[in-house]
Amino acid sequence: MSMYQDAIIAGFGGQGVMLIGNLLAYAGMDAGLNVTYIPVYGPEMRGGTANCTVVVSDDVIGSPIIRSPVSLIIMNGPSLDKFQPMLQDNGILILNSSLIDPAQTEKNRVQVFAVPVNEIADSLGNTRMANMVALGAYVQATGVLPVKRVQDSLVSVISAHYSHMIPKNAEALQAGADYVVQHGRYA
């Protein structure tokens, strides 16, 4: 069976969900795989929520739009309400447990990884890197790509003006991955 992974990444505007969606896709491309990324756009974005869909595969990708994803990165409560019911059975759910009570998840139907991404980012000195912590947890939990591969692609999504932030973001990715290794699934 060929390699295939899709994800819907959702949260508040400003949490950087589009950025980590792009980063995941870039890392997939840089790894020589086929990738698609599609954001929500227009008025849908005005309500303060944002989401994007990423597909990574070693085969030709048909649809960039996914109705029943195999994985989710959920950064806020409304996104959990909207997307958890669509997640495939035994799918992987990365949950921002800093903002959402993991008890709200369907932990017996899907694989939940509850990660306090805000606190971890705070401990690294910058709350705004919570998105990177979440993505680090995601790549660790799914095994879609090596964390190193994602770290190496940071340069593609962080503008030159902020290039001094790349090492910190790489650290945040690693911290998310480490948390999953240490704490495993939420049960």
């Binding site: 792009n22 896709a25 491309m29 086929n34 990738v35 698609t36 990324y37 599609i38 954001p39 756009y41 990708i61 960039p64 739009i65």
Partner: peptide
């Protein structure tokens, strides 16, 4: 269409 226009691919 909006799919081709909005999606990213290599």
């Amino acid at each position: 269409d909006a799919i081709i226009g909005q999606m990213k691919e290599p």
